[in-house]
């Protein structure tokens, strides 16, 4: 992909992010941070490329460490978000 199409995606995604995040209720700001944390670990894609491809042993091991770190974040981030969200309950109506 050429630079301009990538840049377009980036700029548009910034706008989407802006509107989506303003619509998040303040009560869920902590889960918001936890889940953004989990999804920013999509950087694991880069780590997987580094550890999957031949060419440099050093790059492969750096990649594997990065895969491990990102996995801590992905599993930890989504799991802790799930745990928090499960606690938000409405008043019981009897």
């Amino acid at each position: 992909m050429d630079f301009i199409s990538i840049l377009s995606i980036f700029v548009l995604a910034c706008f989407v992010g802006y509107y989506v995040v303003w619509s998040v209720t303040p009560a869920l700001h902590t889960p918001l941070m936890a889940v953004t944390n989990a999804i920013s670990s999509v950087i694991i894609v880069g780590a997987l490329v580094a550890s999957a491809e031949a060419g440099s042993a050093a790059a492969k091991y750096l990649g594997l460490i990065a895969v491990t770190l990102a996995s801590v974040n992905i599993f930890g981030g989504f799991a802790v978000t799930e745990r928090m969200l499960a606690m938000y309950k409405k008043k019981e109506r009897k």
Partner: peptide
């Protein structure tokens, strides 16, 4: 940081996510 790496890799998932997380943190 994730978005910048997404540019390096030309990867849309990383760029979209990076932009989302970046703006989310900035708004907070």
């Amino acid at each position: 940081a994730a978005a910048a790496m997404g540019f390096t890799l030309g990867n849309t998932a990383m760029i979209i996510t990076g932009a989302l997380v970046g703006s989310s943190g900035a708004i907070l």
